[in-house]
């Protein structure tokens, strides 16, 4: 596939299927590339895939999801590669790729099932920005006739909290939109915090929409549980030591990276260290932050 086609295919998924997370969209694009590729060797195929990943990373979309999803997929390719002709290998890759994709699509439902049990009658929940899995969990809990109230931050600069607020209202869940600067103000009123993640790093911490760290520090100080809902394909091999240590491609979109002095640009994501996270709800079960590195080591050993 040529560059233009890859871009089109990828952007089309993101635009038309709102429910699909960026990581899955990237993996689907890579699978499509394998299907259409005319490469002769596995190595060539890998090169083509790596080029495609670079193309997707430069499309002004948050890179965190793409990186972790594609990394996992490349690992998948390496582990599938067998001593057979490329034709056979490709057929097997496609078959197993479909299965892999199916599992990824099921993962959100698994999280929703285990996380919705933690929403008790009469609780107040604070969430940040818009996360598909948090939204579905809240909807599921409300379907089970549980009464609760949700506070959503507006979440500058893209005001994605407004979108979340609209979705919650449409589902008939009582909710209030608050200013990002009101996190401290609202904290005493809530029982716990539930956020999504763009990626989960090796330390067990998360990379998420800027403001998550502020919320986590606040929650720790006021002793409120900080829950993270995330699919396991978002686990990334990255070990940031602090905020500046996060790769620039995570923090700024590609346009800014090219044109603006990054010292003056606003970061899009921040890093929340594991000590601020109570539990992570994933399709692999409910994990403590220390369990994350275990999973990653098992995969990349």
């Amino acid at each position: 596939m040529e560059e233009q086609k890859i871009k089109q295919y990828f952007l089309k998924i993101i635009k038309e299927e709102e429910d699909v997370s960026i990581g899955v969209a990237a993996i689907r694009t890579l699978l499509e590339i394998i299907r259409q590729s005319k490469s002769e060797t596995v190595q060539e195929l890998e090169l083509i895939l790596k080029d495609a990943i670079n193309i997707m990373k430069n499309l002004n979309i948050p890179v965190a999801g793409i990186t972790s999803g594609c990394e996992l997929f490349l690992r998948f390719i390496t582990l599938t590669t067998l001593d057979a002709s490329l034709k056979e290998v490709r057929a097997r890759m496609l078959e197993r790729g479909q299965m892999f994709l199916k599992k990824l699509n099921e993962s959100r439902n698994k999280i929703v099932r285990i996380a919705s049990d933690f929403i008790l009658d009469g609780s107040s929940i604070l969430t940040h920005s818009r996360s598909r899995v948090v939204l579905q969990t809240l909807i599921e809990a409300s379907k089970q006739q549980r009464q609760f109230h949700v506070f959503v931050t507006i979440s500058a600069p893209d005001d994605s909290g407004k979108h979340m607020h609209k979705d919650l209202e449409a589902a008939g869940i009582p909710c209030t939109i608050i200013l990002d600067s009101a996190i401290g103000y609202i904290m005493e009123q809530v029982n716990f915090i539930m956020v999504g993640a763009e990626s989960v790093v090796e330390s067990g911490g998360i990379v998420n929409k800027v403001g998550s760290y502020t919320m986590a520090v606040c929650a720790k100080e006021m002793k409120k549980p900080f829950y993270v809902l995330t699919e396991s394909f978002k686990f990334t091999r990255l070990f940031p030591l602090n905020q500046t240590d996060l790769p620039a491609e995570y923090k700024y979109n590609s346009e800014k990276r090219k044109n603006i002095d990054l010292q003056k640009a606003h970061p899009l994501v921040d890093y929340t260290p594991p000590s601020y996270i109570t539990l992570l709800f994933t399709d692999l079960g409910i994990l403590t932050p220390s369990a994350i590195s275990d999973e990653l080591i098992k995969l990349y050993l």
């Binding site: 996992l72 690992r75 998948f76 582990l79 197993r96 299965m99 892999f100 599992k103 396991s232 394909f233 686990f235 692999l284 079960g285 999973e295 990653l296 098992k298 995969l299």
Partner: peptide, 12 residues
């Protein structure tokens, strides 16, 4: 057992 590794390597 269910793990990230199994997710990647599982055979139907």
């Amino acid at each position: 057992i269910q793990s990230l590794h199994q997710l990647v390597t599982a055979n139907p």
